[in-house]
Design a protein around this nucleic acid. Structure first.
Length: 426
RNA sequence: GGAGGGAUGGCCGAGUGGACGAAGGCGGUAGUCUUGAAAACUACUGUGGCGUCAUGCCACCGGGGGUUCGAAUCCCUCUCCCUCCGCCA
């Protein structure tokens, strides 16, 4: 959510930002109109309430002084004021609801240096690392490798739960576990993150806090009877860890990391990437979440992104960093980098991490504040998050990059201690 | 799933219709005293909104709704917590 005061005072900058985002349908003008109505009504209601407060106090006094007749006359007038208040309050309630609804549908404003373009074609490769491996045989896609090695069972996944589900088996399941544990260990012991194990189901208000609702309900799974939503990423429960809190001085920055399943309906991409495990309804992800002071936001985004990149580097996988253009930026992000690993089998760049700076956009929605100093007024924190890293895709990357001519797969060196010393999956 | 009890400021806790934004205590901050510290004493100590920016007004006692001239207090409802029973990893 944006700051309404800023919006009022910077109407031109706001309009410009929405143009840069190619989000001219965002209801920002409506929000500003409703805000004006709202303040007008509020002034009226509050003036009447002030009158009623003093009047009601006076009634009490009159009774105590035994002047019952004057009291009941005043009572009559207060009743009329009460009716007026009720009427105006009803109107105010409607306006405020509409105002709030509009505010929730206005996207975050991009950082000034984000490349401007209407869609992902405008994304910019800002960095490349490693050389794609030269194969002396045609590299196979992961679904062929995994099936031959009997480490992913696609058919039975579908039998149990339908398309876009799979079963990891034997060394496949263990490889996933090894990756998760190694990722966590690096973040915890080397990057200063605190591990958390959060709920995988959350209430509506948490989804609103991170910006998944109200706009993206059709991408989420939910309980049919109770107010529970399955998380599409650990970002949701972990960011909401501090919702409605004021963090005391000296407790920022806070870095958290969580390995959780993620559940996504993938309705919008029906028919896309149906082979293999690139796009599925349930997957594991290690997610990093930061709560920081505003002035450190940009450098925290860089170090967060580096925390993810370092893992790919130590796995010796070629990757590139892509800066996301305005038109491709997610609703809540002010700036975002994707990390893409080269998959020689499918011959494509796989997005294995998304690192975003949200500034105070989520903090306003979830009401997460901090005190800049002892006794100072609370301010909104900045939040950031990034995958570190996303699982099924990292399995793809390892299988396809480390495959050998005979279909076996070499286990990357850093993972061997996590695989019981196994050097080759065959 | 059943029965009962509860939710008040950073924390504890009083408050069953009007002088309550809320007693008292703890904690915190500042001052007095002291070489310094402790103790004692004194003062201050929530959040947000609107602004004719005035020592101004409004809202907030778990959330929402109702009764009333007036609600922390009465009624309804939801959420959460605790105790006991049942079930269970």
């Amino acid at each position: 959510m944006l700051d309404i005061r800023w919006m009022r005072e910077n109407r031109e900058a706001l309009a410009e930002a929405m143009r840069r985002l190619y989000a001219e349908d965002a209801p920002w003008e409506r929000a500003l109109e409703l805000d004006e109505q709202r303040r007008k009504l509020l002034a009226q209601v509050e003036a009447l309430r002030a009158e009623r407060n003093t009047g009601s106090k006076r009634i009490g006094e009159l009774y105590r002084e035994g002047r019952a007749e004057e009291a009941s006359a005043l009572k009559e007038r207060m009743r009329e004021i009460g009716d007026q208040i009720a009427q105006l309050e009803e109107e105010l309630r409607r306006v405020e609801e509409a105002f709030h609804e509009a505010m929730l549908r206005i996207p975050n404003i991009p950082e000034p240096d984000v490349p401007v373009a209407p869609d992902e074609a405008g994304n910019v490769v800002v960095k490349e690392w490693g050389e794609p491996r030269a194969f002396d045989f045609p590299p196979r896609p992961h679904w062929e490798l995994a099936e031959a090695l009997d480490i992913i069972d696609f058919e039975r996944g579908v039998k149990i739960a339908g398309s876009r589900f799979y079963v990891l088996k034997g060394a496949g399941a263990r490889l996933q576990r090894a990756l998760i544990n190694w990722f966590l260990d690096v973040h915890i012991h080397e990057h200063g993150y605190i591990e958390v194990y959060p709920p995988f189901m959350v209430r509506t208000h948490c989804m609103v806090g991170t910006g998944n609702l109200p706009k993206f309900a059709d991408t989420l799974y939910r309980d049919a009877e109770e107010d529970y939503w399955l998380i599409p990423t650990a970002e949701v429960p972990v960011t909401n860890l501090h919702r409605e809190e004021i963090l005391e001085p000296g407790t920022l920055p806070r870095y958290y990391v969580a390995a959780t399943p993620c559940f996504r309906r993938e309705k919008v991409s029906a028919g896309k990437d149906v082979r293999g495990i690139k796009r599925v309804h349930q997957f594991e992800k290690v997610e990093m979440v930061k709560f920081v002071e505003p002035h450190t936001g940009r450098e925290e985004l860089e170090s967060l992104t580096r925390n993810a990149e370092e893992l790919v580097e130590r796995l010796e996988l070629p990757y590139r960093r892509v800066e996301i253009a305005t038109g491709d930026l997610s609703f809540v992000a002010a700036k975002k980098y994707d990390i893409e690993v080269w998959a020689p089998g499918c011959q494509e760049w796989l997005e294995v991490s998304s690192c975003s700076l949200f500034r105070d956009f989520q903090a306003r929605r979830a009401n997460i504040r901090y005190r800049p100093g002892e006794g100072a007024r609370p301010e909104y924190v900045y939040t950031l998050n990034g995958s570190g890293l996303a699982l099924p895709r990292m399995i793809i990357a390892v299988l396809e990059n480390y495959q050998q001519a005979d279909g076996s797969v070499v286990v990357p060196e850093v993972l061997r201690p996590y695989m019981g010393g196994v050097e080759v999956i065959r």
